[in-house]
Write a protein that binds this DNA or RNA. Structure first.
Lengths: 341, 341
DNA sequence: CTAGGAAATGTTAACGATAACATAATTATT
DNA sequence: AATAATTATGTTATCGTTAACATTTCCTAG
């Protein structure tokens, strides 16, 4: 594609060497003002576009980063991508977008492709099913610049940018407890994913700190999607009614939406029969008949920070490895029992 | 980044030529079974990853396409990207994601960058402010493979994939008219964007076919965002009350949301005082207190079709130029006056 | 006016892979 | 066994650009 004009062609037209043209194009000094002007004009008239492919081959830098997300069409991730793109554009990098579709196999596939493309670094949020830490370790060991975001693998030599999942989960569970509910369930995310584990940890800690019983029956794996939340909640609702929890902490908003659907289908109401809270502040959370109390994650910021960290890691040999936490905000609405009129 | 093992290194280790290794890696025939095995083993043990940069320089194909969207974090576009990614992955291409942020300047900037990256083709949805058709024409003339999606520039030698905007707009306007409303306003999109013009055309045609007056005061530019819809609606609500329209056709759902906010702030109710319909079936549309009647656009399909068309255009010299229309579906809820209890 | 240094320009090789052609090794054919 | 036909492998040049070094041109100072 593209006009495919080369430096050499410009050079020939002007009777100079390719090197001189290269110097002009790259704004190097030691070029006669006269020549510079002639080259620039000719380049413009011939519609020259520098060939980054050739440039990259020589410089071994592509000025390109790869992003691996588990799902593109999810507000949280698309907002993160938006933040990444912002930084990438400003820093004059380019962005390969790939999607693992929550499959560890596909994840490896796209990572290998990104390596072939010789990206300068990779931003990754692990797929739900990825558990081969060795693979990530090998990547790092072989020199691939890696920064994890949101769904992280910590302490393997790569920086991580995430939300303070554990403390946020603690905070919102605590809030529910302060309503006086004694029996609280947790719809938890996949165990393989850090986010799932961290939130479960915060949940348990809050219960323990309040000397409430952690009932294993009430800790049900829901995954991150609405359908999983629906099923998990149905499982709970199929317990004898005297074993029902009074409150539910969902691993994220979509799971909460599914759970809400299940509760309603059983003919019960929120928050009077069962109170529920989410995590992520999905765009729909405030629009529910009973608006959802949740944790707002600054996704755009998260994307920005992750991209910034990766680019720094690429550009500075001695950039330290960090675990960066982005602070969340609890958004209190009605589903927890507040503002209940 | 990456281990940077080269064909030549593998070749040296084995005492064969680089060419032989290349043949093995690319599964060419005429290689001894013995040699093939040895090469494959050595390549694996050395952690060889083929260098696509070098490959692309020779082949003049990058197997990469660029996508230019005006906004990443908008459900409609992220769903389109999702569809594009699906096809790109299956066809073994790669995807550069760029964002014009609704700025024509930035749009040109990212297109030039994509050309430098020697992408095989570009998918583009124009920025709101892009009006330099000459620029697109030049791109096409210079051989850049281009396919427009959603916000298109037709008849300049590039294929377009879009929703049947005009007929959909006609259909939903017609629906509003069938409720018996005689005075109908239109919050229209930027004139520079095909989508805006097409929807306005459909709106006007519906009015004319029903012998209703097209009142210029009621055709207000809102842009595509909530804030614009809010302002445009406020403009209308500041008309003397006897000049108010009874129904509103918004160019898209966000604009409708803004308008709804304005109407509520004025203390009026939907649809009893003013009925309103949107376009795009935003995820929030059904969750509003008065669920929004709107047009569902199969964004995922749109992305898929656009990517498929681009790849065909890249791979077949004589692929015809087409204007592909994706058929929408009207989603009738309550904001138009239906189901009003 | 001439040496010496700076400025402008040129030459060559390299980045990693492959196409196209050339040669060597093997097998088949008569 | 000799030659043709295959099959396996090697060599060279090239893609477009740039780094590193080489050469030429120009200017300045003694």
């Amino acid at each position: 594609m593209s006009s495919n004009v080369t430096l050499k062609q410009i050079a020939e037209e002007l009777g100079v060497s390719a090197m001189t043209v290269s110097r002009v194009i790259n704004n190097k000094k030691n070029v006669d003002e006269q020549t510079r002007k002639r080259v620039l004009e000719k380049a413009a008239s011939m519609g020259y576009t520098p060939n980054h492919v050739a440039k990259s081959l020589v410089s071994k830098k592509t000025h390109t980063i790869g992003v691996v997300i588990p799902e593109i069409h999810h507000a949280f991730f698309s907002e993160i991508v938006s933040g990444i793109e912002e930084v990438v554009y400003k820093k004059n990098y380019h962005l390969f977008l790939t999607n693992s579709a929550e499959s560890s196999e596909r994840e490896r596939d796209v990572i290998e492709a990104l390596k072939s493309k010789r990206v300068d670094g990779i931003l990754i949020s692990c797929a739900e099913t990825s558990d081969d830490i060795e693979y990530y370790k090998r990547l790092v060991r072989d020199g691939t610049k890696l920064v994890f975001f949101d769904r992280c693998v910590e302490n393997i030599g790569a920086s991580c940018v995430s939300v303070n999942d554990e403390t946020s989960s603690y905070q919102i569970t605590q809030h529910l407890i302060e309503h006086g509910y004694k029996s609280i369930a947790h719809l938890h995310g996949p165990n393989k994913v850090s986010v799932g584990r961290e939130r479960l940890k915060g949940f348990k800690k809050a219960l323990e700190d309040n000397e409430l019983q952690v009932n294993d029956k009430w800790i049900v794996e829901s995954g991150f999607r609405e359908s999983g939340g629906y099923e998990a909640m149905n499982y709970i609702l199929n317990l004898p009614k005297n074993e029902w929890p009074r409150g539910v902490v969902a691993v994220n908003d979509p799971a909460a939406f599914g759970a809400i659907k299940a509760i309603k289908e059983h003919g019960y109401s929120i928050p009077d029969d069962i109170a529920i809270v989410g995590f992520s502040d999905d765009i729909r959370a405030e629009l529910l008949p009973c608006p959802l109390t949740t944790i707002r994650q600054p996704a755009f910021t998260l994307g920005k920070k992750a991209a910034e960290k990766l680019i720094k890691t690429i550009e500075n040999e001695d950039e330290p490895i960090e675990n960066i936490q982005i602070v969340t905000e609890m958004i209190v609405r009605s589903s927890c029992g507040c503002n209940n009129s």
